[in-house]
Nucleic acid binder design. Sequence first.
DNA 1: GTCTATACGAAGATAGAC
DNA 2: GTCTATCTTCGTATAGAC
Lengths: 212, 212
Amino acid sequence: METPVETTRERLLNVAEQRFGEGGYEGTSLRAITVAAAANIAAVNYHFGSKEALLRAAVARAMAPVNTERRRRLDQLEASGPPTPEELIRAFIEPGLELVLRRGERGAVVARFIGRIAFDPSRRIRELYAAESDPIESRYLAALQRALPQASPDAVAFGYMNMLGLLALHQSQALSPTPGAAGSGATAEDPGKLAENLVAFLVAAFDRGLRA
Amino acid sequence: METPVETTRERLLNVAEQRFGEGGYEGTSLRAITVAAAANIAAVNYHFGSKEALLRAAVARAMAPVNTERRRRLDQLEASGPPTPEELIRAFIEPGLELVLRRGERGAVVARFIGRIAFDPSRRIRELYAAESDPIESRYLAALQRALPQASPDAVAFGYMNMLGLLALHQSQALSPTPGAAGSGATAEDPGKLAENLVAFLVAAFDRGLRA
DNA sequence: GTCTATACGAAGATAGAC
DNA sequence: GTCTATCTTCGTATAGAC
């Protein structure tokens, strides 16, 4: 069923994940990608149609397991009574960090790629990412609203946006020694510890930091 | 002392602020900047030396009033006894949002520019921004540590990084109708209200969400 | 079906005339 | 200070080999 070696298409996706996460979309040339993937310069256009279509395919492939796991957790939580804010936050953050950071070097590459794309300066690229996380966004917003009845819909949306942003921030810093600002151990080497810190930070903010 | 019209240099900085904030560094061509600034294609290289040097000058100019105001507030806070976490968070967030968003369209352009640059995928560009906010970073970290003696240095650095990230997130969404994810009113139209929401969110997270 | 070689227009950058 | 000319590299399109 499976070919023993990676196809050109797979190599292109793997290299794109690595390079786009390292230098951003605009900062990475198709030539650099095709050389690293041992493919011809025209291979991207043949397999995907354009540079942006390659990015779209890479985002979809990277987000698929994260979305699947989030859906699975949401289903499970909602099957056993109304979830707490902490359970919902955990069901959002952990698939984005653990599932991806627990897979060694390759997982970190994927995490950085997702985080960077989520914050790309270009409107079209962020929309591309948003389209991939949209399908479950409304489920999370509704569940959070039920778990936080005292908060207004605007406040819940504000909190969700912050959760998304902080996850992307820490994802984008995978593989970075001292990236944005703070000192040495700000981002834990242990992805599980990072997830715990981020969940605790967000739970406190959601529970007591959302203005009506 | 001042020429009645903007100099070519000033026009280039103004246009760079607007275009870099809109499309990112790599996504904006020097030709687009020089055309919009009614300058020759070579003017950037003459006045600044390179595209990156233009960006550096624009970041320095945009950050200067923010840093000045932050220093002023820190001085004032520390003159009257040990500041609370909320006072420190307010002294960090408000100069970044109000000082910039309260200046109408032009201020929003500056805010978006700063926010985008802080999250740029390119390592060199983020370092450029970090260099501009570095000078006061250690003062904030030390003051936060004193205000939160129960938190470890790593935890304080983690919180500071999150504060920086969320500020950049909301700055980058100035002038954007529905940017990242959440619905209509997630980012308040009123910048003062946004600042209050963000401060409340962060205060709760710092006070009860930092693991020792 | 896959892939390669090649060409085109536009971009960033710079040297040198003015 | 300003502008023109020019170099290299970019994304993309196409024609045709395997």
